[in-house]
Amino acid sequence: MTDNKQSAGPYESATEPVETDVHKKIKAAFTAFDDESNEKVDVREIGTIIYSLGCFPTQADLHDIIAEVEEDHTGFVPLDKFLPVMTKVLLEHKFPPIPEDLLLQAFEVLDKEKKGYLEPEELTKYMTQEGELFIQEEMDEMLTALADHEKNRVYYKDLICQLTVDPDM
């Protein structure tokens, strides 16, 4: 006599650790932005959380995710809605990061003088006027985290190391 639970057991145990690791990773990223420790984050932080998990959706895809997880247009996203959606995104490898060499080429095109850095004003101009636009608030947050404030420069090779994710992690 065959027990269905036993035949499903090996499959479940094989996927459980992956889901557990994925859930831990998502929860850690989410918790970093859960300022009130109430398992909710401001909807404006969702993009940053998703990027920190190594996923780089387009703005349209990001809006779709937010529409799916936002709590009744309150401006907040609860962990219990975000976790299953983000788990699926990570397990299906949706929105993979741009390869490091392509990212470097893009920065080198912007760095016409081959200095190895961009000035914050230059980067802000490109990021707020070209392609998928960043708003000034997003640029301010990014520059606070990424610019060398003593020299007033953004060293893009350092930036690329922070933006790219080891796929084996």
Results as ranks from 00 to 15, higher is better:
E100L: 11
T164V: 09
T144V: 15
G47H: 06
D34R: 00
Y11D: 09
T144C: 13
G75R: 01
L62E: 02
E19D: 14
D101L: 13
K27L: 09
L146V: 15
P78M: 04
F107E: 01
D168E: 11
T2E: 07
I160N: 01
Q6M: 11
M86N: 01
T124Q: 10
Y51R: 13
V18E: 08
A8W: 09
L163H: 02
F82I: 05
K94E: 07
V154S: 02
A32G: 04
K114M: 05
P99D: 09
V43L: 01
H23G: 12
K27A: 11
Y156P: 03
T2R: 05
D72N: 15
K24H: 12
V85K: 05
L53E: 03
F95W: 08
A29D: 04
R44F: 12
P167I: 06
A8P: 01
T20G: 06
Q105M: 11
K5I: 12
A28W: 07
I26D: 03
L83F: 03
Q59F: 07
D34T: 03
E141C: 11
L91H: 02
E39G: 03
M86C: 04
M169F: 10
A14V: 06
F107L: 06
A147C: 14
P96W: 05
L90W: 00
D111T: 05
